[in-house]
């Protein structure tokens, strides 16, 4: 019982020490569709990424490539004018396989960030 209480207290302490305000001074990937690392049953028509901060369209890009490194985008990556935290890459019809997305973002406070993730399309 004491162990429980101690661990609860410890966890609370950690949470307090680490309780970070959610401010983001750089644009980081918040979530994506298809989800980062996930497997989707059907081919998605686009990859959409949501960032923690507003993006500068002029300097924000993303590429989607297949296992062979060939681009599978059907158009350029676009920042949504209505929601500048959203970046969308339209896709060609994807056969089953693993695809990797790399993004390069400039936030409105002039900081660049980049990252990559993969998703998979399952065979039917």
């Amino acid at each position: 019982m004491l162990g429980h209480r101690l661990s609860a207290a410890a966890a609370a302490a950690i949470a307090i020490v680490l309780a970070a305000s959610t401010a983001a001074a750089h644009a980081f990937l918040d979530h994506a569709s298809p989800a980062v690392g996930s497997t989707v049953p059907g081919a998605p028509s686009a990859v959409t990424m949501w960032f923690t901060q507003q993006l500068e369209p002029a300097f924000t890009t993303a590429t989607v490539t297949d296992a062979g490194g060939k681009s599978v985008a059907s158009g350029a990556a676009q920042v949504d004018p209505k929601d500048p935290t959203e970046l969308r890459v339209p896709l060609k019809p994807l056969p089953p396989g693993t695809y990797s997305v790399s993004w390069h973002a400039l936030s409105v406070d002039t900081h660049t960030t980049e990252g990559h993730f993969t998703f998979a399309v399952a065979g039917r």
Binding site: A23, Q53, S107, D109
Partner: peptide, 11 residues
Amino acid sequence: AGHGGATPGRP
């Protein structure tokens, strides 16, 4: 032009 101008929302 700084970090402050880019945090989204009320904060």
